[in-house]
């Protein structure tokens, strides 16, 4: 069994932290993992993506083939649509609702919303939920919580432990707010 995930957003939104948590959980669960990241130029406010592959068998390619992704997890609504060619016919999109507008040609909110609806995307106001935890920077963990039900190979408990492990070096308060954010995300579904 295999789960292929495209993680995406805008440089600086914290998609690599989501990848790190899933990677930690997969390692704990003894799964094979490949995670391709983007570094360098594209991090400066441009679109960023990471291909994350989990499997209980050997994985070959670091990249997901087109039409192969089970899940698109996006920190930004327009960015979720950029990777549609990767989505498998049975794949799901889970995206943050808040647009990150740093380009003049950003699409109209109505058009964006109807396109996402047409794809059956799950759209969540992660920023509002993160504010409830008292830590707006944990918005990415809200999104991971919301997506956790669709990461077939990992259960919520394994992911929650991984959240705690990944943030452990930043202190108890940061761990607590990120775990809380993760749980709030789960409760959205």
């Amino acid at each position: 069994m295999k789960t292929d995930i495209v993680l995406c957003g805008v440089g600086g939104q914290g998609i690599l932290s989501i990848a790190t948590v899933i990677g930690q959980a997969a390692t704990r669960a003894g799964l094979a993992l490949k995670q391709s990241e983007v570094h360098g130029m594209s991090q400066r406010g441009g679109d960023v993506q990471s291909h994350l592959r989990l499997s209980d068998e050997r994985l070959w390619s670091d990249l997901i083939p087109e039409g192969g992704a089970d899940l698109i997890i996006s920190m930004e609504p327009m960015e979720a649509l950029r990777y549609l060619p990767y989505l498998s016919p049975s794949g799901r999109i889970i995206t943050a609702s808040a647009p990150f507008v740093n380009i003049p040609a950003y699409p109209d909110a109505q058009d964006l919303s109807s396109q996402l609806k047409a794809c059956g995307a799950i759209v969540i106001d992660i920023d509002a939920l993160a504010r409830e935890t008292g830590s707006p920077r944990s918005a990415n963990m809200v999104l991971l919580g919301a997506a956790s039900a669709y990461i077939g190979l990992l259960d919520a408990e394994t992911l929650r432990s991984a959240v705690a492990e990944v943030f452990a070096r930043k202190g108890e308060a940061v761990v607590a707010s990120n775990v809380k954010a993760f749980d709030l995300g789960i409760s959205q579904l």
């Binding site: 440089g11 406010g45 441009g46 679109d47 699409p107 396109q115």
Partner: peptide
């Protein structure tokens, strides 16, 4: 509707 988002 998806617009390019170059780095800046």
């Amino acid at each position: 509707i998806v617009a390019p988002r170059p780095p800046q």
